[in-house]
Amino acid sequence: MTTDTLALPAALGGTPAFPDGLPLTRVRVPDRRALLERLATVLDSGQLTNGPTVAELELRAAELLDVPHVVAVSNCTAGLMLVLQAAGVGGGRPVVMPGFTFSATAHAAHWAGGTPVFAEAREQDVTLDPEDAAARLAAADRPAALMATHVYGTPCQVERLQEVADEAGVPLVYDAAHGLGSRRRGVPVGGFGLAEVFSMSPTKVAVAGEGGLVATRDAALAERLRTARDYGNPGDYDTLFPGLNARMSELHAAVGLNWLAELPERVAHRGALATDFARRVAGLPGLRPALPEAGDVSTFKDLTLIVDEEVFGLGAPELGRALGAEGIDSRRYFHPPVQRQRAYAHLGQAHALPRTDRLAGSVLTLPLWSHMDERVVGRIADAVLRIHPYAHRLRAAGV
């Protein structure tokens, strides 16, 4: 910056870092020619569902995740619902899960007939705290399941969570919506617990347009899910149980195969960008990115900051508005936490998770795309660094 005007944050009259705007997400379809050829093949076949393209996607995903079974579904939420139904969640029995997660985690348990019981997030990486989950399982009356979320693509403490689930005698199900491509201590996310359910919606690192994948090592579960996603119909219209129309179409599977082909490279690039951003803002008081443990690989579906308002001088909402003046889009994933949302007010758990409340009140998610380059990441970091010295002036100005 060469002048005081340029050095000022845009909210105080400086030049915006991104005058044309920088959206939170931006999708660029890889290898469009190959995709169009694949889509043409599907359209020419005249078979738009229950066809070979879905089967190919399942096979390729199973190879990538190093699991024996992958079942493609219409979306992650439907996959979670069907897994929980198969696991025997019902009758209002408690399902322990994080409060710091997307609402679909709780919605799936509710629709499967369970009652969400929310547990605390870990301070370090905002994934589920295994010890708090263990305490809530022990206090629950006939708990039905334990659910955990790989938040932002950061792998959970899978080893300890499995011990907790085994001690309580309940199945462990992962909402792995963000985690397609993540690794825990070198092992691909996908083979942990009873099942892991991934999303391939447009905001994810691997996209099918809309869609989900259920990964499991349990052959009987996989077989049931293939029936469950087709209304519970085994093929003769004599339905075995109440299923869903949760099939993934051939067209969506074609898109998903296109994205799956370059997933490891895409995840590595996002990780490098997130690491570069963390290096650039290291030492900035009151601010830290949510990062995985050393040795783990996150998809960094989201690049999220945890902002200590007292130390940084601005809270997450204020920093978001200051960045908005710079043209930088942001979101607050996940605020409010699920136990605070109106959909679950009847459970009376709103005040049960003080650490989750504090962390959720402190998060701010910044733009990160799979095709973003390091120069853009540097400009985002520079904008944050430029804002910090003016925190008190920005607050006084009502930003």
Rank of each mutant, 00 (worst) to 15 (best):
T304D: 00
G181Q: 10
P130M: 07
H178D: 15
A274I: 06
R331M: 12
H371C: 11
A272S: 14
G320F: 05
V164S: 04
Y237R: 14
A106V: 09
E374R: 15
D276T: 13
V297S: 03
A220Y: 01
S103A: 15
E63H: 11
K301S: 15
H371M: 08
S330D: 02
L244E: 14
A109W: 10
P242V: 07
E56F: 11
V255Y: 02
H392E: 15
C156N: 11
A325D: 13
M372V: 00
L263T: 10
A55H: 10
F192I: 02
A391W: 03
R185H: 13
L291W: 00
Y237L: 13
V399R: 07
Y174V: 12
L273D: 06
S370M: 01
A274C: 09
V73F: 08
L260K: 09
F334W: 10
L22V: 07
H351L: 13
G243L: 09
D296I: 11
A352L: 13
R340T: 12
P264M: 10
A11I: 10
D125Y: 00
D166W: 00
S362C: 04
A108C: 09
A140Y: 08
H107D: 14
D218I: 10
V207T: 12
P234Y: 02
A254T: 02
D141E: 15
V117K: 02
Y237H: 12
L172E: 04
R136T: 04
A176R: 06
L39A: 13
P317V: 00
F312P: 11
L366Y: 04
G361D: 12
R26S: 13
V189C: 15
L48W: 10
A396K: 12
L128P: 10
V117D: 03
V189D: 08
A383G: 02
H351I: 01
A222F: 06
G286M: 01
M248E: 10
A272Q: 14
R93Q: 12
V151T: 08
P98N: 06
A148T: 13
S199Y: 01
P234Q: 07
P317C: 05
L314A: 06
D382L: 09
L240H: 05
Y344T: 08
F102T: 15
E163W: 00
V311L: 13
H110M: 14
L347H: 08
Q124G: 09
P389C: 10
P285F: 07
A133C: 03
P292N: 05
F334S: 06
N245I: 04
